[in-house]
Design a protein around this nucleic acid. Sequence first.
RNA 1: GAACCCGUAGCUCAGUGGUAGAGCGUUCGGUUCACAUCCGAAAGGCCAGAGGUUCGAUACCUCUCGGGUUCACCA
Length: 756
Amino acid sequence: MEKTYNHQKYEEDVYKLWEKSGAFTPKKDPKKKPYTIVLPPPNASGKMHTGNVLMIAIEDILIRWKRMQGYSALWIPGTDHAGFETQITFERRLKEQGKSRFDFDRATLYKKIWVFVQENKHLIEDQIRSMGASVDWTRNKFTLDPDVLETVVNTFKKMFEDRLVYRADYMVNYCPTCGTTFADLEVNHKERKDPLYYMKYGPFVLATVRPETKFGDTAVAVHPNDKRYKKYIGKEIEVDGLLGKFKLKVIADKFVDPEFGTGVVKVTPAHDKNDYEAGKRHHLEVKPVIGLDGKLNQKAGRFAGLTINEARKKVVEDLKKKGLLEKIDENYVHTVAVCYKGGHDIEPTILPNWFVKVGPLKEPAHEVVKKGKVKIYPKWQEVKYHRWMESMNDWPISRQVVWGIRIPAWYSTSENLNLQITFLNKDKVTKSGNLADLLKEYSLDEIRGGLQTLIAPADAKFSISDKNPGKDYLQETDTFDTWFSSGQWPLVTLGYPNSSDFKYFYPADVLETAWEILRLWVSRMIMFGLYLTGKPPFKDVYLHGIVRAMDGRKMSKSLGNVINPEEYQEEFGTDALRMGLISGTANGHDFNFPRDKVIAYRNFANKIWNIARFINLMFEKYSEETGINVPFLPDKKNKTQKLLKKEDKQILDDLNETTKKVDNSLEKYRFADAAEAIYHFMWDRLASDYLEKTKNREDKEISLSVLRHVYFNSLKLLHPFMPFITEVIWQELKDLRKRPDQLLISTPWPVINSKD
RNA sequence: GAACCCGUAGCUCAGUGGUAGAGCGUUCGGUUCACAUCCGAAAGGCCAGAGGUUCGAUACCUCUCGGGUUCACCA
């Protein structure tokens, strides 16, 4: 054995050894208990980030521990198509080539992204391997595999039949730059200084930051108790506008804050959430003036075709010219909604959308956690779940993204001549308009072939089917929110509904993930699991904290503080990186990347390596000198037990205590406690204390048998945490073992001796 | 605006109703035949501040200050 442990020399080979041995693939043995974890699928075209490393370390610890304890331990790997994120990445590529997604029909674009993802998928899978993850690759899944699509489509069909899916006009968070809608959860709020314009509006002056939406105003609102304006309530006023005079109703509504601005608000139901709600209360006309391209439409007269920002400038200019602008407050600070991906301004927009009716689904999902049928660790995270379940609204599931699972709804073109279509014609020129008009010039086949997007009115007729129901149909171009499909991940990975895997391994034992996606993902999985199988998809939920950068802030590209885990893997070894990260999980809070601990555990790896060298040396020396084999413990026949000295009994006791401590800590998902226990036992008790004492022992036969016994059992305890080096040593010392052919990964876990 | 979390050795963090621990760092001393990725020793903390509960609080409660995160939002 070399003087220091060189991780780079061994890691890859050891992983192959494990995989080849079949240890990752459990047998469905009815005599054994199953233990199941489903890997939260990382982005198929992405790279491993520090959070992924922590996730894999934790899950690998659990699975190796249970496997050694004799369970049929199954850990299923997989990758996610990550709809929106991947499409954005791909579009960036297109941009480098001077192209954009609008240059392709959706089928072609989908194929291109497919190829792109397939080319990259092995990268993340290789990284999962390099982490030592003992996942069962024979069951590897991708969220766009045919069987996944089948299940997701069937679920949607069932939900539709159960009246849990509906279509409706809805005010969505639309990002004109990204060209898609975002769920409320995906919208960020940013504080910003914007000019507040005070403009003359008939008899009123009112304040707004968005003068460009005035063409969509369909009322003016004041507070019902505002004495200043009481006489106008219910009346019509005449307004001198940029496009001529027009009339508006004055409504009274409590949403108006009389203290703000002048206490008068223009109401634009098509482009503001509050106004939309107010519009519903007062039956106001909804008049959209901004299109999906982020430009003003024909209703804005001569301002049509301008982007929002251009229009704002121009409108303000013209208001000034006409003397309709009273003043501008340049120091107005407010919060604006921006999309979480690119930070672009969100434009609240009315769109027909597919919805999941959440009421009947969330009640049982709330119950199982309340009743403890699903336990959340650490306990204090549970509050977040309950609060979310109480406030969860119906779930908009349509995304205007090509890269995803297309909603299996079909529109008959003969019955829906008012479909709004955008497509590329034979000459690759973009054409859009309503179907009736387009059909005058183009065949349906040409439209279908070049189809980009289709917007069906909320009352359009459709049928739900996994196949094209007839010749004259067009399929919905919206795709599912990725959480709709990944919400069924525990089901699809386990072969729901009829496979033998499903019968044996479902429900999973633990769902382990970052607390960040408790709402987005965990809650949905519980809902789907209960809805489709009547059982929650897992028993325990363990939520780990976010790994922050060394400066204590969240890692982000823009801050330039992102840590690339691969560098640490290379420099200090995967085992050290895993252990270092685990040390940060003690109480489940977020923590800063523990660089010092990674180094400390690299040193620890070297420590246990050198204990092995020492043992090796002592055994060689002993057999050379005496020609006798050191007896194995426990050894009742040979009376070794009776010859044990006090210090021998002490270290055996300590081993027993450490085993207990590791087991108990892991039962409670206290990974850092377990790691620390084994660390201090091996370094302080075994190496610094007991090993030193053996040097002076006369009865080498006894002390060496104890030393070997304790060390080998320590390796077992440590194996789930630091799988590579422990397995390497296990193989290096194979001649000192009873069963030299055995791999550590498949060795039984140390038994706790409870007699003492 | 609301909720939650945090404030413990120089740094990063554990922790407990009975007057504190780890890793790293620092200082001093070590080429003992497993390991300098090591060994031995040492220094270093009125556990943010104030009040309360208690025989006793760093730990429980209240408030203040400081930091973080999430959620919600008014033109």
